[in-house]
Design a protein around this nucleic acid. Structure first.
Lengths: 338, 338
DNA sequence: AATAAATGATGAAACGTTACATGAAATAAT
DNA sequence: ATTATTTCATGTAACGTTTCATCATTTATT
């Protein structure tokens, strides 16, 4: 005798409806069966409040409908946004997400890959930094922001175009002497192309520019000494800064204001990523916005191989510029020119 | 003949090691077996690169090691922080998280609960707003920030104490006439206690105060008219504001500064939650910080019933005050007094 | 040395699905 | 009216585990 509180199975439904097990399976999976059968089964399902056991399904199909997402830290706004959109794209396709915060740590990245494979995920999406990451041949993998060989597709923003756009915007906004700021990073990844793009943009617009790589440890001090090198008669020698991320831009802007330099009046600042302090509020600084929803959709598409004949090795998605208070507004620019 | 590329099973390991299936199972699960057997099995596991199929385990044990997390929007910083810490707490216990962004929508909340139960999750943690949420009797549920009856434990910050602390801080910082600001919300949840706590604090410290509930739609306009009502001879009649969230505080501060009111010189503002614009940077405003890691840990603990004899209906965790630039610093306060 | 007790490996059954070979019933063709 | 064909429900096997009764082996007891 079955306990009252045990979860009903297909067998129970079949008995209740007076049909065979296979018939119930067909009804559940939307495979056509005779009208009268379907109705009886549907009634029994409702009566018993039956729900399929997706783990039995997974066992049978050797598919788990689970995708692992490896990402440095899900609290950081840009990554949180990726998490949100990738999760949504997966849920829409009835897939689950196994979320792994790697904390930028190569060992943790490897551990999570191993764990994901033990959990028999159907694939992995990873924004990783470990250059020696070992991934099993038969586990589909899509990388974000980093090319990992021809077998693994990479999805990223068009970082080069983004850098270029930043330079062009600064030129349009009246800058003549600009700086590029980046925090040092050893790994060769897609976001590094922002620098080349910016340089290219400066050259084509005739901007005089300076590239500065700050050390991770003492970025503040380095920036301050960089500033003092560029002050002539109490006036800054450049009037525009492009920071490689909004995070850096935010810190730089704080520092500038602390030193009584006005943003955007004395120096305009453009960041990269498109971060807002809260949902629906304006951007934290003027910025090159990454198309996060599109990146998410593309990752999932590539991973699950939907409507794609061959995987391209690198997909770059278009970025846009957005005003965020740290550049002159088009309005005020107009006034200034007239 | 098994295909070369098929995933090895316990059966394969057993054959390779020349032992019984059950013996392999024991080795895998750390149940003691004879030394020689264990060694042979371990060798075979390594040779075949065997990994247990957790879905077969789940089927057998009718445990899925999965917990669903229902949360309005994982991009909003406070929720993103909860997601991060709950995910971590679950992974530490070898549990997976099924992340569900409900977008504050009652129907979506119900849909996700149903979906979670179909996925046979071992429990649900939910920060929800649907007052009629239907949850199956046998699905463990832990609520965040909302009491849902005696059968469902609720975890929250000590919101009352937080409100009180905000009033006390404003008093300590020299305020005499303060305001409480909240965006209207119909549901009776724990964060609403911030208001009562603040009122209590004002009374015990002899602060004159005003409580203002803004409408969700036109909060901006309402706030501006609220301000104009309180301006006497071009001077604000209050010198401190407690906003129910950092999100609201952020918007209020922007508005104040746009109206040329100086924060914190003219009016000091305290928010609630403890939001930072980026990981590791300072708080976005002076604030009452919620103990998110502790909330996460407590939720998981209660849900999985670890070392707990009976479930308390409501757990309130202690909050702290943190300086974030929108109140006078202790230093400057000292200067001011002397 | 013979029997009893303890130890521990064995392998079949079960978990809840899906897929497929089987066979029964209904329809079409002669 | 009989046979050929189609249609479609049936029920068993298999997915990869864990559990438990069974049985072989070793150790202890007399």
């Amino acid at each position: 005798m079955k306990s009252e509180h045990s979860v009903p199975t297909m067998k129970d439904v079949a008995k209740e409806a007076g049909v065979a097990l296979g018939t119930v399976s067909k009804v559940v999976n939307g495979i056509p069966v005779g009208e009268s059968y379907r109705l009886r089964v549907e009634e029994a399902i409702k009566k018993l409040n039956y729900q399929v056991n997706s783990y039995a399904q997974g066992l049978k199909a050797s598919k788990t409908y689970t995708v692992a997402l490896l990402i440095p830290n899900t609290e950081e706004p840009f990554f949180a946004s990726l998490v949100y959109h990738i999760n949504l794209a997966l849920l829409r396709r009835k897939y689950r997400m196994l979320l792994c915060s790697t904390d930028f740590d190569s060992d943790q990245e490897q551990e999570y890959v191993t764990m994901a494979q033990q959990n028999k995920v159907d694939g992995i999406i990873g924004l990783t930094y470990n250059p020696h990451l070992q991934i099993e041949e038969n586990t589909p993998f899509v990388a974000i922001d980093r090319s990992m060989g021809t077998k693994i597709p990479c999805v990223a923003s068009d970082n080069f175009a983004g850098g270029q756009l930043a330079a062009e915007k600064l030129a349009d906004l009246g800058c003549t002497n600009v700086a590029f700021l980046r925090i040092g990073s050893s790994l060769d990844n897609e976001p590094n192309k922002r620098k080349a793009g910016f340089e290219n943009g400066c050259l084509s617009r005739g901007l005089s520019y300076e590239m500065k790589i700050l050390n991770d440890g003492d970025a503040y001090e380095e920036f301050e000494s960089f500033l003092s090198e560029h002050i002539q008669d109490g006036k800054l020698s450049f009037d525009g800064i492009f920071c490689v991320t909004d995070r850096l831009a935010y810190l730089i802007i704080k520092t500038l204001r602390k030193l009584n330099l006005r943003v955007p009046e004395d120096v305009q600042v453009i960041g990269f990523d498109g971060i807002r302090p809260f949902q629906g509020t304006e951007y934290i600084c003027s910025t090159i916005v990454q198309p996060v929803p599109e990146i998410a959709e593309m990752c999932v598409n590539l991973l699950l191989q939907e409507n794609l004949s061959s995987k391209p090795p690198l997909v770059c998605l278009p970025v846009t510029y957005a005003y965020g208070g740290t550049t002159r507004e088009p309005d005020s620019l107009f006034i200034r020119i007239s």
